[in-house]
Nucleic acid binder design. Sequence first.
DNA 1: TCAAGCATTAAGGCACAGCTTAATGCGGAC
DNA 2: GTCCGCATTAAGCTGTGCCTTAATGCTTGA
Lengths: 301, 301
Amino acid sequence: MLDVSDLRFVTALSTAPSLAAAARTLGVTPPAVSQRLALLEDRLHLRLIERGRGQLRLTAEGAYLVDRAKGVLDDIESLAEDMSARAGRIDGPLHVIAPFGFGRLRVAPVLTRFGEENPELRPMLSLREDPVGAMNDGLWDVLVHVGRLPNLRITQRKLAPNRRLLVASADYAGRVGLPQKPQDMAAHRVGVVRENQADASLWPLTGPDGIEMNLRVQPVYSCNDGEVLRAWALDGFGIVERSEWSISADLRAGRLVRVLPDWSLPDADIVALLNPRAVRSLRIDKFVERLTAEISAMPMA
Amino acid sequence: MLDVSDLRFVTALSTAPSLAAAARTLGVTPPAVSQRLALLEDRLHLRLIERGRGQLRLTAEGAYLVDRAKGVLDDIESLAEDMSARAGRIDGPLHVIAPFGFGRLRVAPVLTRFGEENPELRPMLSLREDPVGAMNDGLWDVLVHVGRLPNLRITQRKLAPNRRLLVASADYAGRVGLPQKPQDMAAHRVGVVRENQADASLWPLTGPDGIEMNLRVQPVYSCNDGEVLRAWALDGFGIVERSEWSISADLRAGRLVRVLPDWSLPDADIVALLNPRAVRSLRIDKFVERLTAEISAMPMA
DNA sequence: TCAAGCATTAAGGCACAGCTTAATGCGGAC
DNA sequence: GTCCGCATTAAGCTGTGCCTTAATGCTTGA
């Protein structure tokens, strides 16, 4: 009577603002959704979704169906996972969320290779400006984040250490000179990565003797893409605070030099989060394992 | 990945002695089963059923799959039931088990009518010589039984009162005469219904003053079909112990007369059992309701 | 007033899951 | 040895589930 595809269909509908929207996410035309819903309702002799005046609304029966459907779907999917794990197979969909810069430059290559090695895997990499905000969407397996997240029930697996460094181009250092103490910063042009709600222009510095101080800077340039800011620094426009993973190659090559090397900012270790709501699977474990190995081994290039 | 039909398929296989046997119960040809199983195993990259040397045997993975599948199937079927109930619909399969005689003569008409009134219902009536034995097969919704069953966790719903009576044909009474006290029975030809393992030839009689006695009779005729025995009595061959429901019309018409009317045998009320393992559904509730009404209202015709 | 987006109905098409038949090999019973 | 039932493979067919396009009417906002 009821089929898994019916349950999937109706749960997909339940989160869509309109049938047309559902059609788009399902990758079919609106009539397909409309008539399939009508057919299902006929079959059950029940109205599932009230679709008058604009907004979709689940009826009581629809809501009940969706609710129970989620349970059944979870169950059968976890069963499929179990079977796949018993076969020692790495297959199925793997949703990874990562921040823009790090995701593109560090996670993507690993995921791509992992996908090539396991032809039945269907990797999906979603680069977000705000990975943490995407957490509650539910549809992800692994979330990579730069910087430990406080106040989380989810266990965070450390992929690699990562410091935040103040840097400027060698050219800038030669032309303008570098600050020798935090207070000198005010005389310099500063760029910051303004990602989430955190106050990017307040730097909690720790000095050589363990002295702590909060330095308020007046950024002349801000961007939510660290790579843009790195380029800005490489072009000699000013001093930026940047993750070690991003600019260590530049440091080694001498394109960038550290600013106030005796002062440090809080570490922003790279961590991976596993979605507690997702079914645990072999592919997830193996991928995180791989990620840990490769990210740690990366020459911070 | 896994579909409900896969789960149904594999659970069906799990109870079959051979693929060919499974094919027969599934109503398809053996190759269909063989290749479908092969396909499923391919898809999971696992061997589910060991089919060497005669007997089928589930592998560990197969057993696990079947086990979990049962849970999922139960879940989704109960969901379908719920939706159907919310629609106030009486539909789907309805497995009824009943004993031979009572089933054919009393249950069948009710079920037939109930089925006609609810075109989407798929009634299945299974008449058994030993309904109680069939209980553990699991595949039933309602079981009708004549006589309360002891030592059962299952709640028994009384459909109608029913006495066991000793009767003979009027012809026999006139020709041979009737016994006046239990001890006289030894001089008469007696027929009994020998159904289950119960000792049909030992009658626990209760007398007019509440006197109890066990009377051992020597049946000259026994049969597991009460209707055959009734015919035997109607033909004037002897005295039989028979359920009231079966012979009350004969009594009213004078074709049969009661023997030892002051002595009574234990009642054998007609009860309905609901399969506790089956999902509760509207159709079952409504059917039992209907059964109760109609059986009670029957003129014991 | 028009344009755009949404929902729905009707009609047609297509892919494919799942079946069939046919043929082969195997093992056990007699 | 022969026969019968089971399992399997190969090849071919088909029903139908599910989609598409096309056309219509409704609502809403510009």
